[in-house]
Simulated assay, not measured.
Amino acid sequence: MTTKAAGQPSRRGPYSKSTERRQAILAAAHAVFAAHGYRGGSLQDVADRVGMSQTSLLHYFPSKSDLLLAVLTWRDSITGDGTTPPDPEEKLVDAVIRQARFNEEIPGVIELYTVLCAESVTDRHPGREYFTERFDRLRRSYTRRFKELADEGRLRPGVEPEAAAATLIALWDGIQTQWLLAPESVDMAGCLRGYLELVLLPE
């Protein structure tokens, strides 16, 4: 039986190379869709960024809509928002501020989300179901958190958990757009904290 010499690098197999190429395509598509949207960005734009032909790209993703949905899933795997169950030990305010600041630090994730979310309301957009389900999931998740706070006596009188949840999501999306247009003038995390302080009683 033979063994590899210590420190000798192992050769990458075809699966490893295929995975790397797939990741490169997703990163390129992320950049293209963030800059131009789904309608404005083309498969050729993505292929050019990766340095491959459009035909080769289609071996990895059979259609443009397949690529879009893969990019959205990939984005969620990076940011964790909307897919990762909240830490039951983390306070709501801390979780929201942490996520907002984390997203600010990752190039393109807010741009991609904002552009594609707006586009998704148009006819036959392949991302419509994704965003519809995402908003439904977020409303249910935040409603549950606000109900827990209400049970603890932390929700201000007259504030309904369902309305507080929907308003938080709407504020977050809106303040992200303002931040994209004027990042030096808009404190995204500060605005979100301010809203939560309005609807929650101090501990």
Rank of each mutant, 00 (worst) to 15 (best):
L149D: 12
Y15Q: 15
M188E: 07
V32G: 06
P85T: 03
V159M: 13
L180D: 04
P161R: 04
F135A: 08
R139S: 10
I25Y: 02
R139Y: 07
H36T: 11
R156M: 05
L58W: 07
R128G: 03
A100G: 05
C191D: 06
S65H: 10
L68P: 03
W74Q: 14
M52R: 07
L196N: 01
P161E: 03
T3S: 06
E203P: 14
R75D: 04
S141I: 11
L58F: 15
A118P: 00
P62F: 08
I78K: 13
L92Y: 02
Y130R: 02
F146Q: 13
V199D: 01
L192W: 12
L92P: 02
L168W: 01
I106D: 10
I110D: 03
P85S: 05
D173N: 13
L149N: 05
L200R: 08
D173Y: 00
Y38T: 09
G194K: 09
S185R: 15
S42H: 14
E20N: 12
M188A: 10
R137A: 15
W172S: 03
D94W: 01
P126R: 01
E197L: 14
S77N: 07
I97A: 06
V71S: 08
E105I: 04
T122F: 09
V32A: 13
G82Q: 13
S185P: 04
I97D: 02
K17I: 14
R22G: 04
A29L: 05
E152P: 02
R49D: 07
T132Q: 15
L198E: 15
V199T: 02
Q176F: 02
E20L: 14
C191P: 03
A189V: 04
L180R: 09
A28Y: 02
A34Q: 06
G40I: 12
E129C: 03
H59D: 15
G37C: 11
I175F: 12
E203W: 11
L92T: 05
L149C: 10
C191I: 15
